[in-house]
Amino acid sequence: MSQAKIEVRNLNVYYQQYHALHDISIAIPQQQVTALIGPSGCGKSTFLRSLNRLNELIEGTRTEGQVLLDGVDIYAPQTDVVELRKRVGMVFQKPSAFPMSIYDNIAYGPRIHGITRKVELDEIVERSLRQANLWDEVKDRLGSSALRLSGGQQQRLVIARVLSINPEVILMDEPASALDPISTAKLEDLIAQLKRDYTIVIVTHNMQQAARVSDATAFFLNGDLIEFQPTRKLFVNPEDKRTEDYVTGRFG
């Protein structure tokens, strides 16, 4: 596996008394797609949200251990969360464009980070939409409401929105679970393109999807990381009995 972009060491996450993640250590490779699989409630989404410190929004969350992004601990006291989230973007389960125009959706990120020149914003909007394979579908109606786009288009819009702030890592939390098969296929194509430039971590319920899009796969169960392998090996020749049971559909 290539060089690690994110190295997680002994990560423990608690919600109030509930111990959600147990001592997770994992190295996420740069410019590859890493899939996180496992049954509902296994902690894979919690893990994903600990990589951009979004768990902190939930009252009573406690995080222990280290998450090193390019070797620097994002949980260190001097970390600027705003800066961190610029580097680590996130796409959510439900395609949720903001209730504003397509243009303003994409320009939102650059604007909050201080870019105000129209030329510059125009350029970012076009580049981001092109990168997300959405430009040709929306270029004639950038001023119309983003809520009128289909679910699949909205999800690519959200990805374009993330790309607009030039992140290094993109986290995706079941991005295709609300999409139809054609939109899902387009999204998977996009993920394959994006990994040339970005490190991608994707949570998915769909094991075929994990097998199709990812280079490495991590299997979570009840808050433990059971196994982390190159995707092919994890699906064809897993080392742990529990992984084998899960990928062959015997539980979960």
Partner: peptide, 13 residues
């Protein structure tokens, strides 16, 4: 929707 808030925060707002 919670997604709007999280989407915005996740962009570094």
């Amino acid at each position: 929707p919670r997604d709007y808030k999280e989407g915005s925060l996740a962009l570094g707002a």
